[in-house]
Amino acid sequence: MILIAIIIGCIIGAIIGINIPTIPYTYSGYLAIAIVAALDSVFGGITSTLKKNFDMKIFISGFFVNAILAMALTYLGEKLNVDIYLAAVIVFVGRMFNNLGTIRRYYVEKITTRKIIAKAEATIKEANEENK
């Protein structure tokens, strides 16, 4: 059900994104950093789902607050003439890689365990037949 919601959301979002007017180039930097922050939140959410400690409130608040904070920091950096958005990108992308690593490890472990279990079951079956 959640998968269906994700797919439908992606399709509707794509349609909306193609049809809304383009954002001026001046603001596209803020939008890019907001997208990175949101993607980080999404991957964090996936990781927490896999770890079975997914909390909707934390996910939603992280999704919006991180994006807004990243935009605000970028704005501040522009005012201070310091490229703070670079720091935000590093942090968010680093966390994204961490989360991706966690997800990858989870699935690899899952597949390996399944194989081991299958092997074990097969040996048990063989043993049982021999015993008969």
Binding site: A5, I8, G9, G13, A14, G17, L31, A38
Partner: peptide, 8 residues
Amino acid sequence: VCILLVSV
């Protein structure tokens, strides 16, 4: 959330 993210 998906709609928002993907549209943006």
